[in-house]
Design a protein around this nucleic acid. Structure first.
Lengths: 240, 240
DNA sequence: CACACAAATATTGTATACGATATTGTGGAC
DNA sequence: GTCCACAATATCGTATACAATATTTGTGTG
């Protein structure tokens, strides 16, 4: 994901496919991003035929992509029913944040130990983008940038396996927020990201880890973690 | 994996399939277990047609199973070349153990906080099995039991997401051991498992976490983590 | 009017045929 | 004798046709 073109959103309409026939990897990312960006809401039924029409490919590629999405727990595959955007339960939500506190807490401490100029640039660049998104009032962009900040930070620890775990957990968090968000202000405070970066770049690993823990707990606490009913949406309209 | 029949090893020979045609889930587990148990060695080429013949199903089911195995990093899918049992690099090996220290360290501490009779039974039952395997001199069984102990312990923390991460990491560790094991005594000391259980069941979370850290570091240090060449093996003979 | 049951429809599950790509083997030129 | 080009083979990638299953709709009866 770190080497994604990103940004563009031209999708082949109906039968006319985007010039180079999409491979399953691109399809995977398109759907993944649509879910993380809250364009596809939890519970949405991802019908294979519809996706075939949209991307202009056979069902095989779609199935490959769906299979990967399911292994990342972003969608749920129900036997003989099909694929649905995952609807994490309340318990699952708490579990996700628990895991994030453990892993991201560790990674942020490790990142502080290996701070260098490249890291400084990476973090500051991202904070810039995040501020710009907020200034522009682009809600979808803010959501994406917020999650991406945690990803960028996780990558700085140079522990690719744990970073990939974090990647999955961030995606699941996005689903959780879509379901359980309350009316409270922001889900991911800009100031905390700024402070977190400063602590990491200043080499204060323990403080950074502690702040990350509080930060994630704060996000979790701002949610309304009580059972909800499903939210579906029109797939055609969102991807087309 | 925790609800597996386990133990039996009748596999349909050639064309004659085992009475109920295997579903992709069973195929997945068969291959997964064969790899974790060192019956399939790193680098082995898993050809789709061969697997079709062995399990008596079409390529679709095989591909579904292989896809899942790949997402767990147990096999590697090379475009237009096929599936190979993964051969973790030295860096990857160190990463796996680093991640295990972080996650299992946390889980063991958490398990100590929630100790109860059921946990005591689960851990002791498993240690019994492990001792029996050692006494019987069944090397393959010892390997499996050793890994399973860590899995059972991880499950006690009732943090299913992190437990599933551990599950994947244990499988990858098994591959790492297959490649890099040295001539040193045991890879996973029985005494340490015993002591670890005692600390957890005694509610000594910090000591248990510290021991887990040392235990995993010990396993890592007993390996010869330097580049090796691949080890292949006859698929037909192992599965058939 | 509500409910049970059956037909019709929609959707996924599987196998297989065909095409694309990589690997291996062979022959000739230098 | 060695190297390179080219053909032959093996293997995977994809699409599609057909079967199995779940859902919905329609109908009749209490």
């Amino acid at each position: 994901m770190s080497d994604m073109p990103e940004g563009e959103s031209e999708i082949g309409e109906g039968a006319a496919a985007p010039s180079p026939k999409m491979d399953s990897d691109r399809i995977y990312r398109r759907i993944f991003d649509a879910i993380v960006d809250h364009k596809l809401l939890p519970g949405t039924h991802l019908k294979e035929d519809e996706l075939c029409d949209h991307f202009g490919v056979g069902r095989t590629r779609i199935r490959t992509a769906l299979s990967r999405l399911a292994s990342n727990h972003v969608i749920e595959l129900v036997a003989n029913r099909g694929a649905f955007v995952a609807r994490p339960s309340v318990e699952e939500a708490r579990e996700v944040f628990r895991a994030r506190r453990v892993i991201e807490g560790h990674l942020v401490r490790r990142a502080a130990d290996r701070r260098d100029d490249a890291m400084s640039r990476a973090l500051n660049d991202h904070l810039h983008g995040e501020r710009a998104a907020r200034a522009a009032g682009d809600a979808a962009m803010v959501i994406r940038r917020c999650g991406r900040y945690h990803q960028v930070l996780a990558d700085q620890a140079e522990s690719p396996i744990m970073a990939s775990f974090v990647r999955e957990l961030i995606a699941r968090s996005s689903l959780i927020i879509a379901i359980y968000e309350s009316e409270k202000p922001d889900t991911c405070e800009m100031d905390e990201h700024r402070l977190l970066s400063d602590l990491v770049l200043g080499g204060h690993g323990d403080e950074a880890a502690a702040l990350m823990d509080r930060h994630l707990t704060g996000i979790e606490n701002r949610l309304e973690l009580k059972p909800r009913r499903e939210t579906a949406s029109d797939l055609q309209q969102i991807l087309g």
